[in-house]
């Protein structure tokens, strides 16, 4: 079972989505990377993901990683946030990347925690860092930053040095503790 068969199986199952697998990178000399990604619309993500996990031809049992990239100002980008699902098939031993593009002002993606429990914290992290909301997530809170932090630091419009939050932290002294 090669990656091409997997992609063929997907195109067969979802003809209306016009799924196309593209290499993650094309080098200057025309070679392409062996890693493929696919664009999936947010509203169909769960159906596609469920198919990918359960179908014997695809069998992506594990969600290796879930992350997000802010494409604000990226050359050739049309959408702002790309939520990236890195899938691994232990049975067939191959990988596939799904990208779901969402935009301001309400970036929202359905949560895949019902399919892969391992998505729970990575989704919280993406919410924490990019402000992309995952509908249906059991416990969507900030994970690394304080709960009353308001900005989303990994967005491209957030400056490296912060927006003055550092000066705003609660100071605990021996007297007040």
């Amino acid at each position: 079972m090669s990656t091409a068969d997997t992609i063929h199986a997907m195109q067969e199952r979802f003809p209306d989505l016009h799924l196309a697998a593209l290499p993650l990178v094309t080098y200057a000399d025309g070679r392409t990377s062996d890693q493929l990604w696919m664009r999936v619309p947010a509203e169909r993500l769960l159906a596609v993901a469920k198919f990918l996990r359960d179908d014997p031809r695809t069998k992506f049992e594990q969600l290796c990683d879930l992350t997000c990239v802010d494409y604000l100002g990226y050359p050739g980008a049309e959408d702002r946030f790309g939520v990236i699902y890195a899938l691994v098939s232990l049975t067939h031993g191959h990988r596939l990347w799904l990208k779901v593009f969402v935009n301001d002002p309400q970036p929202e993606v359905p949560s895949v925690t019902s399919l892969w429990r391992g998505a729970e914290w990575p989704e919280r992290e993406v919410y924490d860092m990019f402000g992309v909301r995952f509908t249906g997530h059991p416990d969507l809170r900030r994970i690394l930053l304080p709960q009353n932090f308001t900005a989303y630091p990994l967005r491209k419009d957030y400056p490296l040095t912060g927006q003055g939050e550092r000066e705003d932290f609660e100071v605990v002294t021996r007297e007040t503790a």
């Binding site: 290499p23 990178v25 094309t26 890693q35 990239v69 050359p75």
Partner: peptide
């Protein structure tokens, strides 16, 4: 570098 993305584990 080329414009693109790569993953390696």
């Amino acid at each position: 570098p080329p414009i693109g993305e790569a993953y390696f584990a």
